[in-house]
């Protein structure tokens, strides 16, 4: 297991004893997770395992009921999402809440301007604005350059997913949390997504929730498996493939359909 406690540089993400309770129900409980800088980690688990709940707690979309979260050595457990974003944390959402009335260009512009803290300007945007050029570059990377002037409400599901990734890549992310980026993509779009994930700079840490085993195992060097809100197993893709518990609850279950 790639743990790095003795090393001087802080871990990208360190989670200790995280739990999230909704009423009487623990969505996740007693989660420990350590992700090194530059690591590619997949989080697997059947539906309802608590993967997205864990992400929500990590980003600050919801607050943790118990436990501690550390980003690059700094405790962020009590920080709101916009502060964590400024530390280089980014995420995509499984059910994309995009700005339906804005174009792809304007959406990516806001991602750039938001992170640069330059969104308070009241004068109309000029076509020559450097931030617009940057948003076009992001659209190029994410594969939505051909729909720059389309409103996001008119995008296909796959394009929305790609736009999500474009938003997450704005302003040099240090750690990316991708929530099932391949869900709902066509078989033709999946390899493109894999290629995009593989092409990310090596120093970017990626934590990926993925149902698609192929994408997960192809793009990740280590895997954590969640089951019923708890960590079931951690290890290399090979370890996970051989793990009997994992086979029983996840792989076995998936084949059982």
């Amino acid at each position: 297991m790639p743990v790095n406690h003795l090393h001087n540089t802080a871990n990208a993400l360190e989670v200790r004893g995280i739990g999230k309770r909704f009423g009487g129900f623990w969505a996740v409980q007693d989660i420990d997770l350590t992700v090194r800088p530059g690591e590619r980690r997949a989080i697997l688990g059947p539906n309802g395992a608590g993967k997205t709940s864990l992400f929500n707690v990590l980003t600050g979309d919801t607050s943790a009921t118990t436990g501690q979260i550390t980003l690059f050595g700094d405790s962020v457990t009590r920080e709101p999402i916009n502060k964590r974003i400024q530390r280089g944390l980014r995420r995509t959402y499984q059910h994309a809440h995009l700005f339906n009335g804005l174009t792809v260009r304007d959406t990516l512009f806001l991602a750039v301007a938001g992170l640069r803290g330059s969104w308070r300007q009241v004068l109309p945007l000029r076509a020559t604005d450097a931030r617009l050029a940057e948003s076009e570059r992001l659209a190029e990377i994410a594969g939505v350059a051909d729909v720059l002037d389309r409103e996001t409400s008119e995008l296909s599901h796959g394009q929305r997913r790609q736009l999500e990734i474009g938003i997450a890549l704005a302003e040099n992310p240090k750690i990316l949390l991708l929530d099932e980026p391949a869900a709902g993509l066509s078989p033709a779009e999946r390899p493109k997504l894999s290629a995009l994930l593989m092409s990310l700079p090596k120093d970017v840490t990626v934590v990926l929730i993925e149902h698609d085993m192929d994408i997960a195992l192809q793009t990740s060097e280590s895997v954590s498996v969640l089951y019923n809100g708890r960590m079931l197993a951690e290890g290399s893709p090979d370890d996970i493939m051989r793990n009997e518990d994992v086979h029983r609850v996840y792989i076995g279950g998936a084949h059982g359909h």
């Binding site: 979309d61 974003i85 959402y93 809440h97 995009l98 959406t107 512009f109 806001l110 938001g114 803290g117």
Partner: peptide, 18 residues
């Protein structure tokens, strides 16, 4: 543009650091 983004998805605006 930020105002319109707040109209469409306020939670998401926060996630852009705004």
């Amino acid at each position: 543009l930020t105002i319109q983004a707040v109209r469409d998805a306020p939670g998401r605006v926060l996630a852009l650091g705004i």
